[in-house]
């Protein structure tokens, strides 16, 4: 029978705190950048100009149809050679994860905008609004409300995806845990704690998304 000894975790507490901090900071960065990229790409996808739509679609499909781990490694090892630039592991990781998330956000945003009945923008145009005004004042505010739950779901997935940056030696929660496990020869306790920390952060968020979804379902 394995002898659990959770007492050893205390000695590594600052490692976990630092790791969690890096994970959260990473998540904030890739969610914000990803949303910006996703909004841009989602609007391009709805453009009147076909080449812009193709561009957006190509971006989305490339990032949706390759594994995120492959993207991370490619951005770190291959892109610098192609572009002739030095790239820090964190830069490569932020770039890859933001673009990966952006592809999914883009689809959510496009779907949210498309879900607003055509009659809404027709009514706005009939009042004399330009297409941009109709989008900003009438379509987007309604679409955003519908997009919030799926965007939050995708952001939760993004938080979990940050654990992959440990392969590039970015010192996130998982990377610090690996270091502690090597040091202490106590991987069971350490990976259990890591799992618990992710769960404690994410579970309230999934509850919140569920509540939002139910409230929106009632509102319609």
């Amino acid at each position: 029978m394995y002898q659990w000894d959770f007492g050893i975790l205390w000695g590594y507490r600052w490692l976990f705190v630092n790791g969690l901090w890096v994970t959260l900071a990473f998540t904030a960065a890739i969610v914000l950048l990803g949303l910006a990229v996703g909004l841009f790409s989602g609007l391009l996808r709805l453009s009147r100009f076909a080449p812009l739509r193709w561009l957006s679609q190509a971006y989305v499909e490339v990032f949706r149809c390759t594994p995120i781990l492959v993207q991370l490694v490619w951005f770190y090892y291959a892109l610098p050679i192609l572009a002739g630039i030095e790239m820090m592991a964190t830069t490569a990781a932020v770039l890859a994860l933001s673009l990966y998330g952006g592809a999914f956000y883009s689809e959510i945003i496009r779907g949210g905008i498309n879900s607003i009945e055509a009659g809404q923008s027709e009514a706005a145009l009939a009042l004399g609004m330009t297409p941009n005004q109709a989008m900003r004042r009438i379509v987007l505010p309604q679409a955003l409300k519908r997009m919030v739950p799926p965007l939050m779901n995708q952001s939760i997935i993004q938080l979990k995806n940050t654990s992959l940056v440990s392969v590039l030696a970015v010192p996130d929660l998982l990377y610090q845990g690996q270091a502690a496990a090597h040091d202490s020869y106590r991987p069971l306790e350490i990976y259990t704690l890591i799992a618990v920390i992710y769960f404690v952060v994410l579970f309230p968020l999934t509850l919140l998304v569920g509540r939002l979804e139910r409230r929106l379902a009632r509102a319609d």
């Binding site: 027709e122 009514a123 145009l125 004399g128 609004m129 005004q133 009438i138």
Partner: peptide, 18 residues
């Protein structure tokens, strides 16, 4: 187009209120 449409009002079968 927007300027032109601003001079006419349109009412739809499905109301299309915001």
């Amino acid at each position: 187009l927007a300027k032109f449409r601003a001079t006419t009002g349109m009412v739809f079968q499905q109301f299309n209120l915001f």
